[in-house]
Design a protein around this nucleic acid. Structure first.
Lengths: 237, 237
DNA sequence: TGTACATCAGTGAACGCGCGTTCACTGATGTAC
DNA sequence: TGTACATCAGTGAACGCGCGTTCACTGATGTAC
């Protein structure tokens, strides 16, 4: 992150400034309105100078995407490290961490999980690794609950059919997971269900005054997500 | 929709053209880039002429929002009318209709359920009524399944706590629903869970090639949503 | 039925604004000998 | 240690573009008497 010469250190600092200013503009004006000229203004530099650091507007967007995924995943990891080491609580801890980060950073959340920015395609080589960290963590947390014998399996376990079974086998192999098909399928539902509720909250898609305490509503949603996995939830029993 | 004089009829037709062209621009360039000048160009008219029909860019956005909510809700209603009158299938029919409309109209779906357009706030008087149709329909469909005795209640039913219980009571009263608290809370989870999965699909937030058949994955998701409600799902048993 | 007036759709010019990107340049910092 | 050269950050002007909105206007359509 830092080079050894003064020039390299100055460059690294300027690079960080650009990303920080970009984040701020994202928060105020949204991704579609992110402009290199505005970033240059806030950086106190003429607009063409930014091109010494960033090849184009799209490249700045990519930096912000990677930055966002990384911070979100770090927040999730930190919450897990700080939380109780209870396999029954894993999904709740991950869920709350995602929601809290999203509410604190609505514009960055929108960049990652909202409407795609028109004309911009995130380059896979840079964004896939940070972008998959949260789902991987969620799968590992579910694996722990399963290993602890907390999850009730359906009996008999349903056959999922192709190509889904093959897709799941590939994911399982890539991550070295010990999860049966039925649980992988449910985990994916939990994943989309989690982000669905967070998106509704962050983007204000419940009515404005429909729910007085959305954190409370979210806890009930987590109950239901745990229920999908076959985890017994006190308040559901 | 049509007036009686030729002038009024011409005006109505032009109005429809504006909304149609706006829809097309939405699809190609996204909501943030929607421009009155571009609409005017496609309409074959000078840019200031559009102001005879629409007070501002924001008003055009509102027209498109209302138009989108209405078409989505109409699609859901049509699917229910065409589908089997089986209370056990209601959520599936609604879910599939939402997903199919969203995949066919990704830009309009994004306008309704994606990142809020920066600087634009939808006026409640015009957008709330069409915007709540789908969730109201979903609740009625769940009510039917409940009335048919298809949903297994938790025993004992959990207490939700305030203010959620009060919020739910208000919704129930407004819609004249016969749903107990526990089921209302689950219905809300199904709602956000449904849109979460559709959003992942439409916005391509699963990895590009992670799942070979997303319709199949969505059916498994619907299984899990039915499971939240306490509906016995063949492939889950 | 015919005329005078009011309404309205659309024109064209203008206002002031912001954008991404390129290019030749200046002057400071770093490096090889 | 000192000098010659290469590298690099940042400048300022320019290119061509698009945007929302206002305004005075022309000419066609509609209406009241």
């Amino acid at each position: 992150m830092t080079g050894t010469t003064p020039r390299a250190r100055a460059r690294a600092r300027t690079m960080e400034d650009i990303v920080r200013i970009g984040r701020e503009h994202l928060a105020v004006h949204g991704a579609a309105a992110l402009s290199l000229r505005a970033v240059a203004r806030d950086l106190g530099v003429v607009s063409s100078a930014v091109y010494r650091y960033v090849r184009s507007r799209d490249e700045l967007l990519t930096l912000l995407v990677v930055d966002g995924y990384t911070e979100l995943a770090d927040a999730v990891d930190a919450a897990l490290a700080a939380g109780p080491d209870d396999p029954a609580q894993g999904v709740r801890v991950v869920g709350r961490a995602v929601r809290e980060w999203a509410l604190a950073e609505p514009a960055r959340y929108g960049l990652l999980f909202g409407t795609p920015v028109p004309g911009y395609e995130a380059p896979a080589e840079q964004t896939v690794a940070p972008g998959t960290r949260v789902i991987y963590t969620l799968l590992r947390v579910i694996e722990k609950a399963y290993a602890a014998g907390l999850l009730t399996a359906p009996d008999p376990a349903p056959a999922l059919g192709e190509p889904l079974t093959g897709d799941i086998a590939r994911i399982r192999a890539e991550l070295g997971l010990e999860l049966p098909d039925w649980l992988m399928a449910r985990a994916i539902s939990v994943w989309t269900g989690l982000f669905g509720a967070v998106t509704f909250d962050v983007f204000d898609q419940y009515g404005a005054d429909t729910f007085g305490d959305r954190a409370q509503l979210f806890e009930r949603h987590l109950d239901n997500l745990d229920g999908i996995l076959g985890l017994p939830v006190p308040s559901r029993e």
